[in-house]
Structure formats: structure tokens, C-alpha cells
Design a binder for these strands. Structure first.
Lengths: 349, 349
DNA sequence: TTGTAAGCGTTATCAA
DNA sequence: TTGATAACGCTTACAA
């Protein structure tokens, strides 16, 4: 026996459990994967010894031998605020279909392709790519290269190569404009950080709502570079300053992004404009910052749970039948009313 | 041939590559893991065919056969703002030591233990647990159960069971108080969300600095529940309202958390107090929110890169020699001066 | 420089 | 209900 016997020695295997009980390895395997063909007494004894020895299945060996993989690969960007929330909710969704998750991060120095490559090494049954840095051509190439179905969670459109899951950004923004109109607002400005991937869709929602309600469109398009989200609140701040230079303020400002809304909010607050008493401000995403009681932003919630569920469902569907054409899942959004909106000219004490 | 031959059929193996070239599997293996013992010509040909066939190594098979694992398991909480940043930087740190990463998330419905269990199934060589929900007893139990070294990244103290990586919160806060004193501040209040895991350490830094500088301590201890970070900005808002009720405001407010600082900030701004002209406010973490140009918070940066590097270093060290005692790495912090601090009574432009 | 043989821990197939 | 045998794709040790 070694002196440094601090739990070193190789981990217990099914063979060890079998030896302890004087049964065959195969029987142990049956029991541990809940397959039929073992007596209740045997099951109990096997489980007990497994527990006692601290048995942990070797996933490598399992994936080597198994016919069909039970792993879903997930690519995500840790730095983004909404993606980690999808990750949280994707675990139970996958478990409900009998799948485990293998996570792989894409970062500034680690491309989507690299993350995918690693996941394919694990021989997952399907790939869920959240907030990819790739455009459609890139995703198409990735899907071609991948031997398993690919699901893109983000801003893509229905196509023949990979599944798409996105939220109904246009409908969400339109609902927000409707909400403000319902409060009595008529002068509703819109801040458009045009560099944002989802911007076009959301802008369309504003345009549509404004037309339907017979309001005058008042769009502040702010160009910029889409680099790691550092820019959106800057866009809001810029638009806010532009608004402040005008003779009169709108009574409401709609933005397609919580950070943009916070940019507007802070600029207004610093100039003594009260929110929501003087101006209502709205965001999109329901990012953590929107929930800060001090920010308390009325926003549109992209339900991360529904996104996760839809992504898993799409993957599982095509894993089950590779012949199916990729689909498109549009996840409904929900209006979250908080303290940054009120009827125009209202003074909440 | 099947009609649905859309890249289905099993992925290519080393045997396929070998067959294509008329060499042995083992030679292919040599080449693909950069081991000595193959001619340059062979290497080129093997690599070319591998590329052409779209070969991807089966990590399960590899981990099954290999003597020593080259994987590091990482547990993290997606919902936290700082942890994903560590994840970003831990990839290159691990790669520098020749390790791959396997990520596993802990969430509200997925305990630390479950995440760890999954990682052990992958037979990683070491475990890095970031922001664990467990207390010391829990981590000790986890370390005992784990056959591989465990590194806790968070707020733990040096102990005999697992490595600890934490940032120098006390020094960071003391430096911040020193910075404010250097600007001329004498009335420096401190907001203490006592439910925060790292609170005690940071509070100690404030106490020490105040004593050394001969200032009067002005601590606002805000109790609360530590549930998923939803509370810290509330603590700031509460403390801010308390301050506003007093006859006179301090000229600076130090907090041990960016969200707490934002809570203070928003309450002050809404009451017409200018930051930093009337009151300076500081945070801790350099969370994304602190960098928003509209928040522009002077804060203490917990370097996520250094944390990641220290964690990997600790793991690799004990993987190399299991007999070594676990250590403690205290990562230095850096003061990040932004727009929320200025000399007292200053009016910027 | 290349090939041979064995085996990692599991699951699948078949026979008892 | 249980057991024997083979095989998954790879690495290791050793022989040619």
C-alpha cells in the first residue's frame, strides 16, 4: 500500500461491484442503467455496493460502447448576460428527454468552430449553438461539417441546413409600443443601435406598431460596432443626449436592448429628467440589470426557459429522424412592467 | 446506401485513415498525438487524410485508454456575472498546461454535488469549483469524496482538504479608501451587505484603512438573504435612503459590491444628488454593469484572468504531486478609476 | 520508422 | 434471471 493513499488508486468499476457480490459485470450494467432482467433483490444489492464503493460510471467507456449518444453539445458565450440564463434552463429540458449536456464556451480567443469541434469529439447526438458569432454562411458550413443536427439559438431565419430558435422580437416591441399608447403616450421615440444582430427585427415591430396606431415615427438610429456588448449602452447614452438637445422631449423612449435603455436612463437622470414622471423608458431582454430595483426597467422578457426548451425539442426531433427538414421556433416574449413606465406627465411621489 | 445519407454513417476512425493510406492504426495514432516515431512524409499524409475525411478524435475512447487524464473539470454558476468571466480566461490557462476543460453548471435546481458527480464521470484529472454554494464542511466532504484534487475559487480559507483561490478583498477595499482619502475625502461611509459571502473580508479592509487614516468609521450594515444576487442592489438602495434621511451626506460611499454601489447611485441620482460632484460612490468586482458608460463606476477589479490562472496552477500542481498540501492563492486586485469618484465638493466642468 | 498485440470500462448480443 | 463473449476507438508496450 502506498503512503499517499488519499483516495488515489483507480476508481471502482462495474467489475469491482460484480466481484464484491459474486455476480457478473453484465448484471451490474443491467441494474445501473435500469434495464430489465434483474431481480429486485439483485438490484438492491448492486445499488448498495455501488454507493458504498463510490462508483461513478465512466462516461468515456459508455459513450464508446453505446449505440446512440445521450449527450447534447451546447456552445455558449459566457460573457453575454442572457445566454447563461438559457444554460440554466436547458439542463432540465434536456434531462426531460433523457439527455445529458456537454458545455463548450466560445470566447474572444476561442471561435465557435473550435467549441463545436470539441463537442463533436464527445460524439454528442446533437449540437445547440447559442448566440453564435457566425453569420448564416458560417452556420451553414458548420452544419454541413457536423454529422449531427445543429440548432442555432439566436437571430437566424428558417433555412434548409440547421434549426432556428429565436424570440418574437418584433411582436415584443410592438406590444411595448401598444402598452405605452395604452398609458396615453403619443410621442414615442425609438432608439435603434443598428449594429445589433437582432435590431432589424425589433425595429420592424416598432414601425408596424407606430403605423397601426397612427403615431409619428421618431427613430434614432445609432450606428456602431457590435463588439461584446460594450457598445449598446453607449448607443443609448448618445441617443439620450440627442433627445435632450431638442426643444421638447418625447414622453416615452423605446429601446430594443436593456443596456441601451440604461444608457438613456442614466443620461436623462443626470440631467434632472425624472423617469417615469417626465419620460418613460423601456428595454428588451429582461437582463439582470433591468431587475435591479434601482433600475427597475419595464422591458420585454425573452423567456430563457422557453428558448432552452425549444432548442432541446428541435435537437431531439431531428436526432430522432434525420430526414426531417430543419424548422424554426419563434418563442413568444412577455411584457414585464416595472417602474420605468407610467402615464405621460404623471408624478409618482 | 441509405437515402438519408446526409453525413449520417459513423464518424471516421483512425482505422479508416490507416486503411486509406495502407498503414497501421498505431502509426496514425502516433502522428495525431504528435508523438515521435513517424517520418515527415507519413505525418503529412496522415494529417492530410485526417483532414479530408473530417476526422475528429473520439475523446471517450481516448480517455478510456489513456494513463493520465488531460481534462480539468470546472463547476460554475452561469447566472453570476463574474464567474463566466473566469471561465473565459481559464481556457487559455488550461491550454498552457496541456489541459482541456469540461464545464458543468450549478443552478438553482442543480446542486454543486451533482455537477461534480458528472465531472468525475468524465474522469478529469482535477476539479475547479467556482463560486460554490457549499460552505467549508460541504467542500471538505466533496474533496474527500473526490479521487482528484479540488480547487475552490471563491471566499474560502486555507485548509488541509482543498486548494483555495480568492482575491485580496480586504486590500482592495483599503486601497479604495486610501484613494478617496487621497482625493480629500474625510467622511467616507461604508455599506455592508452582511449576507454576502465575501463581506467580512472586505469590511475588514475598510475598518483597517479608516483606522490607519484616522477617519471616523461610518458603517451601514444591511442584513439580507443571499439568494442569487438579487439582493445586493437592494441593500445599496436601502443604505442610500438611510443616508438621505440624515442631516448631511458623507462625501463618499464605499461598497463591497458593484450592484450595491449601483443601488446607492440610483437612489442618490433620483433625489437630485450629483455623482461624483456631491458624493463619490465606489463598487467592487468590476462587473459588466460597472463598465456601462452611463454607470461608469469606480471599482475594484477582481482580475478574472489571474483567478483563472491561479486556479489552473493550483490544480495542476496537486495533480502532479498528490502528496502536496493544498495551498491558498490570494489574487491581487486593481483599482479601476472611473467617473463615479472625484474630490469632495467638486463640480466637473 | 513501422507493425503487433493487448487492454481500458462499458454495452450488446446471444446462449444458458 | 443470469452469464459468456465480443466489440467500441483508442493508447501503450514491445517487437520487427
Amino acid at each position: 500500500m502506498r503512503p499517499d493513499d488519499t483516495g488515489r488508486g483507480r476508481p471502482p468499476t462495474m467489475a469491482d461491484i460484480a466481484a464484491h457480490l459474486g455476480v457478473s459485470r453484465q448484471l451490474v450494467s443491467l441494474v445501473l442503467r435500469d434495464a430489465p432482467g434483474a431481480s429486485d433483490r439483485t438490484r438492491r444489492r448492486v445499488r448498495q455496493v455501488a454507493e458504498q464503493l463510490g462508483y461513478s460510471a465512466h462516461v468515456g467507456a459508455r459513450s464508446l460502447r453505446r449505440t446512440r449518444s445521450t449527450d447534447l453539445g451546447v456552445v455558449f458565450t459566457p460573457a453575454h448576460s442572457t445566454e447563461p440564463e438559457i444554460i440554466e434552463h436547458i439542463y432540465p429540458a434536456a434531462a426531460a428527454h433523457g439527455y445529458d449536456l456537454i458545455l463548450s464556451a466560445q470566447t474572444a480567443v476561442r471561435a465557435t468552430g473550435q467549441a463545436v469541434e470539441e463537442l463533436l469529439g464527445h460524439r454528442c447526438a446533437g449540437l445547440i449553438v447559442i448566440g453564435s458569432h457566425l453569420d448564416h454562411a458560417g452556420l451553414r458550413a458548420l452544419s454541413r461539417r457536423s454529422p449531427v443536427p445543429v440548432v442555432d439559438v439566436g437571430y437566424g431565419r428558417r433555412n434548409a441546413h440547421y434549426d432556428v430558435v429565436r424570440s418574437a422580437g418584433d411582436v415584443g416591441i410592438a406590444a411595448m409600443v401598444g402598452h405605452l399608447a395604452g398609458l396615453g403616450h403619443r410621442a414615442i421615440a425609438y432608439v435603434d443601435p443598428v449594429a445589433m444582430p437582432a435590431a432589424a427585427l425589433r425595429r420592424r415591430g416598432y414601425d408596424r406598431a407606430v403605423r397601426r396606431l397612427g403615431l409619428a415615427a421618431d427613430v434614432h438610429a445609432v450606428p456602431g460596432e457590435y463588439v461584446k456588448g460594450d457598445y449598446f449602452d453607449e448607443a443609448g447614452a448618445t441617443a439620450g443626449r440627442t433627445l435632450l438637445r431638442r426643444a421638447s422631449l418625447p414622453t416615452a423612449v423605446v429601446t430594443p436592448n436593456d443596456h441601451t435603455a440604461v444608457g438613456v436612463l442614466q443620461v436623462l437622470l443626470r440631467e434632472g429628467v425624472r423617469v417615469p414622471q417626465d419620460v418613460s423608458v423601456t428595454g428588451f431582454d429582461d437582463a439582470p440589470i433591468a431587475r435591479l430595483s434601482s433600475v427597475d426597467l419595464t422591458t420585454v422578457r425573452q423567456d430563457p426557459e422557453l428558448m432552452g426548451v425549444a432548442a432541446v425539442r428541435a435537437a431531439v426531433r431531428r436526432i430522432g429522424d434525420a430526414g426531417l427538414a430543419p424548422g424554426e421556433a419563434v418563442v413568444p416574449t412577455a411584457l414585464v412592467e416595472r417602474g420605468s413606465t407610467a402615464p405621460p406627465g404623471s408624478r409618482r411621489f
